[in-house]
Design a protein around this nucleic acid. Structure first.
Length: 703
DNA sequence: GGACTCTTGGTTTTT
DNA sequence: CCAAGAGTCC
């Protein structure tokens, strides 16, 4: 078998694939065949006599895991599968298996963002605080960051010294209480609890270390502290850890990812072998050169070169558009040209910084009959009708999940309204029982009328009647609940019905394919599933997605839209240099997805929250080392040739010149980019902010 | 109890 | 601009 693929690999790839025991770090640039190396490494290990059961590979997304599983099965000839999954998925399985030591109930519900939002609001209320001063999203972010850094509530309460930390500790504790009452874990809990489980139980650590004798982790640059600890604990038993990643592609710092994990790998594993994969098999030199110029503006990085292996290709196209509608139309027409030249829609992707940017593209694509597919974050499972049906399933598995119960107690309407629910809730908290138990005991709640009690009884009987089927396949149960609960009658439009049908057929597929199918496992797995995982490359459609979603993918032709200051880099990141660097990496990731052609565009006006605002090209554009004016002209787009008027003002804005701006105050010119009428002045204001301003609109005065 | 209107506030990226 | 929540009316 070795000979089967060793000749398909470069020397450094071969070194990584056939590396035996001991820690291994693969620093791999974009398009270097990193995923392929991991896949082959698994095969090579099996070839060398390691049982597939003893291999654990961790990918960044479910989609990546699925693909790797398929490829491995191909290489290994469908022998027993290795454990290939995301960190979260792995943790769910570990927590279920060692629920006792981890101090959780194995039938826990996984709370998603919407559930979390409800819980944090409740927690803020319980603490008698105001959600205007302590905004739910901010507090949730803070709690999440604590968990990612493995700070539990006890530790936080000890450590909290200042006012904000004390408040946060209080909210954190009551948030955790609410979750534990519902027998629920959020995404971060999955990691934190697993990390603690491993830390506090040497037996479990040894057992898992022996089970997963080889641990491979992809996208190591985007692991957070909790994930880092989990990996370290498991691998500490045998040192057979293989991490792969690219510090230049770290784009999840905001989610707790700690780039230091990959930078410090050699310190953590002193005898580590380091393999660099610098050859790029994906993109043309034109694209790589520009991407390299861009990323070299980042100061905190491990120097790495991109070695092109492909022949030279087309220039990068940069389009200056009037508005976002104009931009979408230009993208559409460029796509049509590509199609006319014989390419397929499936070879084209459009990337944007923020999800909301997809709307105008969709509208224009529909008008122009361009088939497309939006690869979005979570969408499908957050649809109302889907959540309703899933809530029925959840309450069957985990009766403590009051959030699910509250969702369906009167959906479809069955005459159990707010007043009744309030009464049941106070009964439940008075007797320290769950909402569902209180429902069952509704006879004992004196304040309820006989009619209401009867309605509750019908509802409880309905749920109980579903319970006898929870050990069977999921799809028939879901179908039965949909019909018998009355949800089916409530369905208004055909889209909703389509979604339900899709859910049920997905459940049927689960019943068929899962290793150990059960309703509990199904619910826990789909909680980790996102629409990004549902990207289907088989359809002949243009893929639309955020730059974050684009990670790990590649396309012949890539469009990146909205290269404007405030969008990419996003204005919320404009404050700190390291955040700007992450935005730059994000753009770098987007660019390096392109194999043959790269189209970049920006609009001069953009409607933001209903307001038409003037926008300025992204400072990143000037870092690409491309003559913007020339490129744009060659595209025949809206750059104007007549720049004679502005030329005369130009020499005034040389670097170092002090200027004054109406809103930003005074500052110093750092850079002047001569683009005639569209010239840009980069000014560092005394406030500390650096802004790129369009000369003709900025109304700068010389001081 | 439920449907409707009005107001307010919030606006990045996702496992 | 949009979504969520409060408030109002039947």
């Amino acid at each position: 078998m070795k000979s089967d693929f060793s000749n398909q690999l470069t020397p450094s790839q071969r070194q990584a694939v056939f590396h035996g025991e001991g820690p291994l770090l693969v620093i791999a640039g974009p398009g270097s065949g990193k995923t392929r190396v991991i896949t082959y490494r698994i095969a090579a290990l099996v070839d060398a006599g390691i049982s597939p059961h003893n291999i654990c590979a961790i990918t960044f997304t479910n989609k990546a895991a699925e693909e790797m599983r398929l490829r491995c099965a191909g290489l290994l000839g469908f022998s027993a599968p290795s454990r290939i999954s995301t960190f979260h998925s792995l943790c769910v399985r570990i927590l279920r298996q060692y629920s006792e030591q981890a101090k959780v109930n194995s039938n826990f519900t996984i709370f998603d963002a919407a559930d979390q939002a409800k819980c944090i609001k409740q927690a803020i209320n319980v603490c008698e605080l105001d959600t205007t001063n302590f905004s739910p999203s901010r507090m949730l972010e803070a709690v999440s960051s604590l968990k990612n850094r493995l700070v539990n509530t006890d530790l936080m309460e000890q450590k909290a010294s200042d006012f904000f930390s004390k408040v946060l500790a209080k909210i954190y504790t009551s948030y955790q209480n609410i979750l534990s009452q519902a027998n629920a874990l959020d995404f971060d809990d999955l990691l934190m609890n697993t990390a603690f489980l491993l830390r506090d139980n040497p037996d479990v650590r040894t057992e898992l270390g022996n089970r997963f004798k080889f641990l491979l982790i992809d996208e190591y640059q985007d692991t957070n502290h909790a994930q880092y600890q989990i990996a370290k604990q498991i691998a500490s038993i045998h040192n057979n850890i293989c991490a792969t990643g690219d510090p230049d592609q770290s784009i999840y710092r905001w989610r707790g990812a700690d780039i230091r994990n990959i930078l410090a790998f050699e310190k953590d594993w002193p005898n580590a072998t380091v393999v660099k994969l610098e050859e790029n098999f994906r993109s043309t030199p034109n694209i790589l050169t520009a991407a390299d110029k861009l990323i070299s503006n980042n100061s905190s990085r491990k120097l790495k070169v991109l070695i092109p292996t492909r022949p030279s290709g087309s220039d990068i196209s940069i389009s200056c558009c009037d508005s976002e509608q104009d931009e979408a139309a230009i993208v559409a027409s460029q796509i049509k040209q590509l199609i006319d030249s014989g390419l397929s829609y499936r070879d084209i992707a459009v990337f944007y910084r923020i999800n909301s940017a997809s709307r105008v593209l969709e509208e224009v694509f529909i008008r122009n009959k361009i088939p497309y597919q939006i690869v979005r974050g979570v969408e499908f499972y957050s649809r109302r009708e889907i959540r309703d049906l899933l809530a029925y399933l959840k309450i069957l598995v985990n009766p403590a999940d009051s959030l699910a119960l509250l969702r369906i107690i009167n959906t479809p309407a069955r005459g159990i309204g707010k007043t009744t629910i309030d009464k049941i809730q106070s009964f439940a908290s008075a007797h320290k029982i769950s909402l569902y138990e209180a429902l069952k005991l509704s006879d004992k709640i004196d304040s309820l009328s006989a009619g209401t009690k009867a309605k509750i009884k019908v509802f409880v009987t309905l749920l109980e009647s579903f319970k006898k089927d929870i050990n069977g396949p999921v799809a028939p149960l879901a179908d039965r609940i949909f019909k018998d609960s009355g949800l089916a009658v409530d369905i208004k439009d055909s889209d909703e019905l389509d979604n339900i049908t899709e859910l049920i057929s997905a459940a049927a597929a689960y019943d068929q394919n899962a290793e150990n199918p059960s309703l509990l496992d199904y619910l826990q797995q789909i909680s980790l599933y996102t629409d990004a995982d549902s990207y289907d490359a088989s359809g002949d459609r243009v893929a639309l997605m955020t730059l974050h979603c684009a990670k790990g993918l590649e396309f012949e032709n890539v469009f990146i839209v909205g290269l404007e200051d405030g969008i990419l880099p996003h204005e919320r990141t404009a404050q700190e240099d390291d955040q700007i660097e992450e935005e730059r990496r994000l753009f770098f990731v987007g660019m390096t997805r392109a194999k043959s052609r790269l189209f970049i565009s920006f609009a001069q006006y953009r409607t933001i929250r209903g307001q038409l605002l003037r926008s300025i090209p992204s400072p990143f554009l000037y870092e690409l080392g491309i003559d913007l004016l020339q490129t744009s002209r060659s595209e025949g787009l809206s750059f104007q040739d007549d720049d004679s008027i502005e030329k005369s003002i130009m020499p005034l804005f040389v670097p170092g010149q002090k200027v004054k701006h109406k809103t930003f105050g005074s500052g110093k010119v750092i850079e002047f980019v001569d683009m005639g009428e569209n010239s840009i002045v980069v000014v560092k204001f005394n406030s500390g902010q650096t802004k790129s301003l369009m000369l003709k609109y900025a109304n700068l005065s010389i001081i």
